[in-house]
Design a protein around this nucleic acid. Structure first.
Lengths: 252, 252
DNA sequence: CGGGCGTTTGAATCAAATCAATTGGAGTGG
DNA sequence: CCACTCCAATTGATTTGATTCAAACGCCCG
């Protein structure tokens, strides 16, 4: 047998090279560059969507990818029985419909939560453009890869955190997503009902409401005057600390 | 504004064409063809792994993709704090390490649960081969897409099912995976401890054990003579029905 | 102003976690 | 071969955290 151990586990070799610089670039720059490249080389169809409008539907034939240029969207997976599960929230720069590539049909439905703009790209057109422009292919791969990682994070939260921390982590990740896009991350206007948040996090709407009230009581968030849907996060790190604390309450 | 509604929502048009035939082919055929293509065109390094051996580690620099030719593997995501979450189980034909493409480092660790063979492909080599052989690119995309869909299914189970059904669904999906690979799906040898299953499903090991005992009491599964880790599934549909029942206990 | 919906909050219930004890194989060494 | 430990798994008793059921509030809109 060949000695392939180095190939399988190069990291086990001591003195491995330091991490590559890809991660250093600010995310906002990455997203802006990506959108610009797509805009330049693919001339995507631009389409304005409004709150509640479907972008693509589960079961529908796969032909296009959708790239969010503005606004935000929610992705639902629906089981054969009635079960409906929100599996992801998407923001500017995120790609929608990637789940349809494998078998030629979308497996999830996507709905706009805001008014925003989606760029529509035919998958075949993307592939042919990519053969001229390898950067486009890298973009597609990076986006798919990121989507795999991101959704694993959700699973982690849902499986390992108690209700309160799950809600806190949800807010933290939302704020993070805004931050990555160069938006202010200390205030959020949630376009989701408590019931939807609950569905996403595997909780009931009452539990979500209670958790938010508790976070407010602890001064980790505060609600705006009138609308209980927009809230402020005075200290994002304190929110992260709250999550940590509930993970290892014994250690600190 | 352009009228792009047809492009955004072609399915809303009545009389859409019937589903494409991609899905009809038996999965075993698809997987076999894929492995054969990879073997022919990429001459991947073949490496035998044993139980407990790491295939790739979180944080390690991304360079290779790993394709399981035999055996099975588990994927772990690890948070900054101690939390460790099993996020996926992989079988023959599945690709490992796709999460590393986005930022140049793997975000998860993968460990063999069996002795098996992984095929090792440098990502760059795959890309250059793919520019000659578009089928290879399709394979990569299909596999990433499938991984996105699959892991959404996990989230669905974990968020919407009670403990007993979650365990039943886990077994059902495992049997399905065997079936897709042309193996017999009426008996499973679990290479996972109760604790690991619990971690995967967001349950404690005691709850997993109780759920399995209950499934056995209901004759939906039965244990082998000595080892409580290999079990038989006399009727896979009955197991599916059990899951359904606990989703909508009022309706039937 | 009144109806409807989303949200909050309380009290009772329940499912799963925790705590704790026992069983049963697998492996080791006398 | 048996006695021994070690660890995985099972099972029971109890606690706890989240759900369920129920009521009330506040906001938006006709």
């Amino acid at each position: 047998m060949l000695d392939t151990s180095a190939a399988v586990l190069p990291a086990s070799t001591p003195g491995a090279p330091p991490p590559a610089p890809e991660r250093q670039r600010p995310a906002a720059w990455r997203i802006g560059e990506a959108m610009s490249l797509i805009g330049r080389t693919l001339a995507p169809l631009r389409h304005v969507v409004h709150e509640g409008e479907a972008i693509c539907r589960a079961g529908q034939r796969f032909e296009c990818l959708y790239i969010l240029n503005s606004g935000c969207a929610k992705i639902f997976s629906l089981a054969g029985d009635g079960r409906e599960q929100m599996v992801s929230v998407k923001f500017r720069g995120d790609w929608l419909g990637l789940d349809g590539i494998a078998d030629g049909h979308y497996t999830c439905s996507t709905v706009a939560m805001d008014t925003g703009e989606v760029w529509i790209v035919r998958y075949q057109a993307l592939l042919s453009a990519a053969s001229m422009q390898p950067a486009l292919l890298s973009l597609l791969h990076a986006e798919m890869s990121r989507q795999i990682s991101r959704e694993r994070e959700s699973l982690m939260s849902v499986c390992t955190l108690p209700a309160g921390a799950r809600v806190a982590e949800f807010l933290r990740l939302w704020a993070d997503s805004l931050d990555e896009r160069g938006l202010r991350n200390d205030q959020i206007t949630l376009p989701l009902s408590r019931a939807e948040i609950g569905n996403y996090l595997g909780l009931t709407l009452e539990t979500v409401s209670r958790s938010l009230s508790k976070l407010a009581r602890c001064k980790l968030i505060s609600f705006a005057e009138r609308r209980r849907r927009d809230l402020q996060i005075p200290d994002i790190d304190a929110l992260a600390a709250y999550v940590q604390r509930s993970v290892a309450p014994t250690l600190q």
